[in-house]
């Protein structure tokens, strides 16, 4: 559905995206993950035909985004960052206008607007002025706008920005339900978001792709390096000795936890899961173990991992 090859965009000497290449298959939900300024929005703007790339090509459904911009724009639903809208229009009026502008006929636009308003939970705010809606509702209007023509490709730039946790969950649910019939490209800087919604993740950093994989695989690779936290009731010296001599443990950190327990944060050598070893060690010695958990890697860890110099590379 999307074929990007050697895409580069330069602004006054500095490259916002640098030689980007990736493909997205029809029906996939793909997440562009990266910190602010990684080039996510730039990539999306080029794909939506809003601005040209400095070099490289991008094709959507076989059409070049620059030379066949109109064909491309007929096939996409795009929600830019911060979801700009005409705030002086009413919700239903706006959606009908957008549907007509995107080429739907009069009666078809009415039917589709009714469907997407239902789909996005906008049924009872149809007559409200967009400028008076809450952030969550506005975001839904933006989503409804992107969906209204049933486009082959839906591009959403930060669709959950500024929403509360319940709204985020609802939006994710909606995006997930789009997979299969639609191809979806979303951008975010929140790691759990892509884990929950996407089939495939592209990690962008300073305009380059650092990793491209299914979220579970990416997770596995990161978990290989995951720290384990255990709260154990035992003499501190014994614990220290045990971990220091343990062949699988690379780094230790022990601090007091509530009560008589000690909190051990252990970094295993790469590729090893030491949770079983901890449990067995505690069992053999008759120590009480009340917590054993593996820290989920945060986006920060992902970037630390991926942007580290090569000699420290561990996967």
């Amino acid at each position: 559905m999307i074929e990007v090859e050697g895409l580069t965009k330069r602004y006054a000497g500095h490259a916002a995206i640098d030689n980007l290449s990736f493909t997205v298959a029809r029906g996939q939900i793909v997440g562009l993950l990266g910190p602010n300024g990684a080039g996510k929005s730039t990539t999306m703007r080029i794909l939506s035909g809003f601005m040209p790339a400095t070099s490289g090509t991008a094709r959507i459904a076989g059409f070049d985004v620059f030379h066949q911009s109109r064909e491309v724009r007929q096939r996409i639903g795009y929600m830019p960052e911060n979801n700009p809208m005409y705030t002086d229009m009413r919700v239903r009026e706006y959606l009908r206008y957008r549907a007509r502008l995107k080429g739907l006929g009069w009666s078809r636009s009415r039917a589709r607007v009714a469907v997407v308003m239902e789909q996005c939970g906008l049924a009872d705010v149809g007559r409200k002025i967009i400028g008076q809606l809450s952030m969550g509702y506005r975001q839904r209007v933006g989503l409804a706008d992107a969906l209204v023509t049933e486009p082959e490709l839906i591009i959403l730039d930060e669709p959950t920005l500024g929403l509360d946790p319940n709204q985020i969950r609802a939006v994710r649910q909606l995006i997930k339900s789009l997979g299969g019939q639609h191809t979806v490209l979303i951008s975010t800087h929140i790691l759990p978001e892509v884990e929950m919604t996407c089939d495939h993740v592209l990690i962008l950093h300073e305009g380059r792709i650092l990793a491209s994989d299914a979220p579970e695989k990416l997770q596995d690779r990161l978990n290989a390096r995951g720290r384990v936290t255990a709260e154990i009731e035992a003499p501190e010296a014994d614990l220290r000795n045990l971990w220091r001599e343990h062949p699988l443990v690379e780094q230790i950190e022990i601090s007091a936890a509530s009560g008589t327990y000690l909190r051990c944060t252990l970094t295993p050598i790469p590729g090893e899961d030491i949770r079983i070893a901890i449990f067995e060690a505690a069992q053999q010695r008759g120590w009480k173990l009340r917590e054993l958990s593996r820290t989920r890697p945060t986006l920060e860890d992902v970037f630390v991992n991926l942007t580290r110099p090569v000699d420290e590379e561990d996967f």
Partner: peptide, 14 residues
């Protein structure tokens, strides 16, 4: 200024 230029120009209009 509001960014709606982007939503407008990414619809199939010339």
């Amino acid at each position: 200024a509001t960014g709606t230029f982007e939503t407008l120009m990414t619809t199939p209009v010339s």
